[in-house]
Amino acid sequence: MSVYPLFILSAFLFSLGFFGVILRRNLISLFFSLELILNSANVLLVGFSKLHGNPFGELFVFFVLAVAAAEAAVGLAIVVSLYRFKKSVNSEDYTFLRW
């Protein structure tokens, strides 16, 4: 099996996540798109790990997973406390840090 189908899947997930980051204004949807981008990197790491027969690429997926979990926890905590403050999860309502 060639590596190219895996490559296409990764490219599709990455550009879809990028599209979501540009289009959506809801913070939780933005997080969904970010998770898609992280997953596209994981797909590519697994694909190249299998292409070269080297398990280090798959090991790196572990570290990406741990960082994704930490990012989700801290990001959601920030979103929840911002929601308590502003009663909105729309990113256009958070303009109070703007100079």
Partner: peptide, 27 residues
């Protein structure tokens, strides 16, 4: 919508082109 579609479509095509010359098969 337009900007996101154009940018992400261009990104998709660029990434596909970058991987077009990959050879070998998965172990």
């Amino acid at each position: 919508l337009f900007a996101g579609g154009v940018l992400s479509g261009a990104l998709f095509l660029i990434i596909l082109y970058a991987g077009f010359f990959l050879e070998g098969s998965l172990s």
